[in-house]
Write a protein that binds this DNA or RNA. Structure first.
Lengths: 109, 109
DNA sequence: ACGTTATGTAAGTAATCACTTACATTCTGC
DNA sequence: GCAGAATGTAAGTGATTACTTACATAACGT
């Protein structure tokens, strides 16, 4: 998971993921969306591929990239470890307040 | 979100998050779980706090830390942008195969 | 007030990162 | 085979990172 998170830190790499999400794109097209040099994007693509976040397919001289959503599995589980817990706490808190409210009504009635 | 992802890259920081998940702990107790020096952990705590992933509460000379699950909101949404899409694709694929299967049965029968 | 405990901050350092320009590789169409 | 297009790789560089040791700050108990 280290490689995935490390890959996700860089904003341009996150933008690349959005670009190849749903649409397969050649390296050149991807690079043209950014201000940095083409080699810089090529290096970013390597980082993303090594992390398992994108897949590469060669077609003639071009290389087509697409999202590999499975690559997000580990980090998704990690985030849910904390984020879902929050939802459960919110739910528990809501239920607690509901219970208090009912008890209060019971007293006054 | 940059600060959150940057904070999550470092493995010791992720471990700190697990430690203060559900349990409020003083800085010293947290540091004692690791091999690196106490100042190193203090610096990690600062990074996590600045990123909004943990909350600090002072009690006398001690500082108690606890998880701030809300801090995961942005990154959770970001990951779901890709991870949920995968689930939807899996679902669509399953439905497509199901449809094919039914059509095949219709022919042979 | 004073020593002790708990903790953060400063300064320095080796390693890593994102970027650049220059060069290498690989495929295609003539 | 060769020119050109699409792309990756190498080498170098300034900025950032995670760590260390040394020092500063703040609250407590006596």
């Amino acid at each position: 998971m280290d490689a995935v998170l490390a890959a996700l830190v860089e904003p341009n790499r996150r933008e690349i993921l959005r670009l190849v999400h749903g649409e397969e794109l050649p390296a050149g097209r991807i690079a043209s969306h950014f201000d940095v040099s083409r080699p810089a994007i090529s290096q970013h693509l390597k980082v993303l591929r090594d992390a398992g976040l994108i897949a590469e397919r060669r077609e003639g001289t071009r290389r087509l990239y697409r999202l590999r959503a499975e690559g997000f599995a580990d980090v998704a589980r990690f985030v849910e470890e904390f984020w879902d817990a929050r939802l459960q706490q919110l739910k528990a808190e809501a239920e607690r307040q509901e219970r208090e409210k009912r008890e209060q009504e019971g007293k006054t009635r």
